[in-house]
Amino acid sequence: MSRLHELTLPVVPSQIRELRVGDMVSLTGAVTVSIGIATHQRMAEAVRGGIPLPVDLRGGAFLHLSTYVREVGDVREPLYLNPTTSTRYSAWMPDIVRGLGPRFVGGKGGLDEASATALRACGCVYLSFLGGGSPLLSRALRAVRSSHWNEYISQFRLLTLDVQALGPATVAIDVHGGNAYDSLRARAQARMPGILEGLRGARGAG
């Protein structure tokens, strides 16, 4: 049976090892978000070049959450956020995970095998947030802690937010080899011969 883990960031490895695919998680503290491809490229290049980033992700969360920040003068107010499809960032996630040490990544739809391998090796889990869950997820927003690479549009910036109980999100890739996406795809593929046989039978019956 799945459990809800209410976690405050940063976390330690033992807390990550407690998480299993299907568990629910809510996060409190500082989470860093971006949905920019250029942002991911730049992060991965910084890792490869040994260039420090303006934010420290160690023990924290780096999430594919699209965020609107209203700016009035010097005041930045986060209005809402919502997950986006993570797989388009797969090319850069292994470097980001290995080089920057987040304990949580997430968005929706999972990541590729190379990224999942990096997650397991580094003690990091992938969280699935509810797509179309903006009204619920946005309740967690408290403040913008920092905003870097502001030459990008709002949702592409390297944005660190203070959140209170962000979630619930579902653990979809854990550090024990559990990967909901891989296992569901394999199960669906294994079911296909039977599904196609059933279709043939239904056509015959119809």
């Binding site: 799945s2 809402y80 509810l130 179309g132 869950g133 903006s134 009204p135 619920l136 949702q155 579902t170």
Partner: peptide, 28 residues
């Protein structure tokens, strides 16, 4: 499936909250 059942509840809550409060269901 218990996770999916909970996800459906969250979906309805999200949609209802958006309609009630004039929020976006999805930021995209």
């Amino acid at each position: 499936d218990p996770t999916a059942r909970r996800t459906f509840r969250l979906m309805l809550d999200s949609a209802d909250t958006a309609a009630r409060e004039g929020q976006l269901v999805c930021s995209d």
